[in-house]
């Protein structure tokens, strides 16, 4: 087709590379399905307790800062875009631009965590933490809500940290030319992981912040 495709074919024929991109992608997808079911279990737990304590959940959700949640949603959606743009840049053999986009992703991921730190910090300050003075005054439903809030956003935050590490390793490999425009599956896998973390937040945001 183009010169680009020809050079790829040459590479395949001249240097024998022992790799299976599709197997690699499928393996990561299977892992992502276990992640979906892991968070799915928590979502079902949330649904059950929200069904049992509708008033408690609505009352507790008013403690959350809607603006902070919305800002974090925008941050994550944008970081997802920059990962995809990074993949496109690498496929166009623009290594510099690819690393630039991935740097933006990392910065946005860190910003998300900083926001989370302030959010959790504000709640701790108000005495909402396990055995905290404010939490002990609350109704059963509110206690369940905050239990789920901490577990779900905490586990999600942990996934952000892991995703950032994944992207960091991939960036290092791009710098060392171990990931290139013709061998980009590892970058795509890091992207897939980052997107699933984004999708989980897409559901966490309305379920935790927007209860009336």
């Amino acid at each position: 087709m183009s010169q680009h495709t020809d050079s790829i074919e040459e590479e395949i024929h001249e240097v024998h590379v022992h790799r299976d991109d599709f197997g690699s992608k499928m393996g990561l997808w299977l892992f992502l399905l276990t992640e979906i079911l892991l968070f799915g279990g928590l979502f079902i737990l949330y649904a059950g307790y929200r069904y049992l304590y509708p008033e408690g959940f609505a009352a507790a959700a008013t403690e959350l800062d809607l603006v902070m949640g919305a800002v974090n949603t925008v941050i994550l959606l944008t970081s997802s875009l920059t990962v995809v743009l990074g993949i496109v840049a690498l496929q166009k053999n623009d290594k510099k631009r690819c690393l630039f986009f991935l740097w933006i992703t990392v910065i946005f991921g860190l910003l998300f965590l900083v926001n989370k730190y302030f959010e959790w910090g504000a709640k701790f300050h108000h005495g909402i933490y396990p055995k905290g003075p404010a939490l002990q005054e609350m109704s059963e439903g509110e206690v369940m809500y905050f239990g789920l809030y901490y577990v779900m956003t905490g586990l999600h935050g942990l996934h952000i940290v892991i995703g950032l590490a994944f992207i960091g390793i991939v960036m290092h490999m791009i710098k060392k030319d171990k990931i290139t425009g013709t061998n980009f599956q590892k970058l795509e896998n890091a992207g897939l992981y980052w997107h699933i973390v984004d999708i989980i937040w897409i559901f966490l945001f309305p379920l935790l912040y927007l209860i009336h």
Binding site: T5, I8, I12, V17, H18, R19, D20, D21, F22, G23, K25, I87, V88, Q91, K92, G181, T182, F184, Q185, E188
Partner: peptide, 11 residues
């Protein structure tokens, strides 16, 4: 050996 992914028209 497996399959090698080749990008077409990235945009």
């Amino acid at each position: 050996d497996g399959f090698i992914a080749v990008a077409h028209h990235p945009s």
